[in-house]
C-alpha cells in the first residue's frame, strides 16, 4: 500500500486537532451546563401553593424590620429578588428568631431568609445556600494605618465593645503577639469613635456594626479587613433538594453578576 503523501498527513493531523478542540469545548460546555444549579422542575412544582413562603425574623435591622404590616431590609430585598428570578410571588412570614427552624421543619414556610449563620451541625434537617453576607468580626482602622491584620497590632491600641466577641478575640490575640493596649468601650460605636478621633489605632467590632458606622461616617477614610467568619445563608429543608438547587443557583448568579452586592450596598 502506498504511503500517504505529506499533504494528506497534514490534513489528517489538522482534522484530528480540530476534532479534539471541539471535543474539549463540548466537554467544558457540558460540565458548565451540568454545574449550574437549576431546578429540574418548574417553580409551580417547587411551590405547590403558588407562592414562596419566606420565614423571617423582622427584629434585626438592617436585615429585616417591621413597620406596621410592612417589612423591609436586606433579607426582604433578597427574598423578593429570589422570588423574581424564580417567577413566583413571595410571602414573608414574620416570626421570632427561636421559631424559624421549627417553622421550616413543620413546612409552615418554604425557606428561611433571616440573617441565619450557616450551621452545618443542622445539616441532617436543613441545607444552606452559599453565604450572602459575612457578619464576623472586622478590624477597622484609618486608611493610612499600616495595619493589615490582627498580627500587626503589637505595640498599638485596639478598641472594642466590652464583653463582646471582639473583646474575647482581643484577649486571645494578647497571648499570641507582642502586647497591645486594649481599650474597652460600652458600645461598638464608641469603639469606632475612638479610632476615628485618633484615640485608638484600630477597632475590633462585628461587621454589621462596623459597616453601619462607616455608612454613617462616609467622610472618614477607613478600611476594614475580616478577622473571622460568621456567614449568613438561606436555609431550606434537607429533603428539598430541587428548591435548594434553585435558590443556591440564584445566589451564585447574584454573587457573580453583582446584584447581591447592590442589595447589600443599599443597606450598608
Amino acid at each position: 500500500m502506498a504511503r500517504p503523501t505529506r499533504a494528506v498527513r497534514w490534513a489528517a493531523l489538522w482534522m484530528g486537532v480540530t476534532a479534539a478542540v471541539w471535543l474539549v469545548v463540548g466537554l467544558l460546555l457540558a460540565v458548565r451546563w451540568g454545574s449550574i444549579e437549576r431546578p429540574s422542575v418548574s417553580s409551580r412544582t417547587l411551590f405547590p401553593n403558588g407562592v414562596m413562603r419566606i420565614g423571617i425574623d423582622a427584629s434585626f435591622p438592617p436585615f429585616a424590620v417591621a413597620t406596621g404590616d410592612d417589612l423591609y431590609g436586606l433579607d426582604v430585598d433578597l427574598g423578593k429578588a429570589i422570588g423574581l428570578r424564580l417567577q413566583i410571588p413571595t410571602q414573608f412570614v414574620n416570626m421570632g428568631y427561636d421559631g424559624l427552624y421549627d417553622s421550616l421543619l413543620s413546612e409552615q414556610v418554604d425557606v428561611l431568609i433571616s440573617a441565619l449563620p450557616i450551621d452545618y451541625s443542622r445539616s441532617r434537617d436543613f441545607r444552606f445556600t452559599l453565604p450572602y453576607f459575612n457578619a464576623g468580626l472586622v478590624l477597622i482602622r484609618d486608611a493610612d494605618q499600616p495595619i493589615e491584620g490582627m498580627e500587626d497590632l503589637g505595640g498599638r491600641s485596639v478598641s472594642f465593645e466590652f464583653g463582646s466577641d471582639g473583646d474575647l478575640v482581643a484577649r486571645a490575640w494578647l497571648r499570641r503577639i507582642r502586647a497591645f493596649e486594649t481599650r474597652p468601650y460600652e458600645t461598638p460605636d464608641y469603639a469606632l469613635d475612638a479610632v476615628r478621633l485618633g484615640i485608638s489605632d484600630a477597632a475590633l467590632v462585628d461587621a454589621v456594626s462596623g459597616r453601619l458606622y462607616l455608612r454613617a461616617h462616609r467622610e472618614w477614610e477607613a478600611r476594614y479587613s475580616s478577622v473571622n467568619d460568621v456567614l449568613y445563608g438561606v436555609a431550606v429543608r434537607a429533603d428539598d433538594r430541587e428548591l435548594w438547587r434553585a435558590v443556591n443557583g440564584i445566589i451564585r448568579t447574584m454573587l457573580e453578576d453583582g446584584s447581591l452586592e447592590s442589595i447589600i450596598a443599599r443597606w450598608f
Binding site: 466590652f162 463582646s164 474575647l168 484577649r171 481599650r183 474597652p184 460600652e186 469613635d193 478621633l197 484615640i199
Partner: peptide
C-alpha cells in the same frame, strides 16, 4: 469570656469600685 473575668474580679476582690469600660471618646 469577658464575663468570667469580671465575675472573677468581683469574687476575688480585685475590682472593688473599678470601672468596666472607658468613657465615650470626646471629639
Amino acid at each position: 469570656t469577658p464575663i468570667y473575668y469580671a465575675i472573677q474580679a468581683y469574687a476575688r476582690g480585685w475590682s472593688q469600685g473599678g470601672r468596666l469600660w472607658l468613657d465615650p471618646p470626646a471629639p
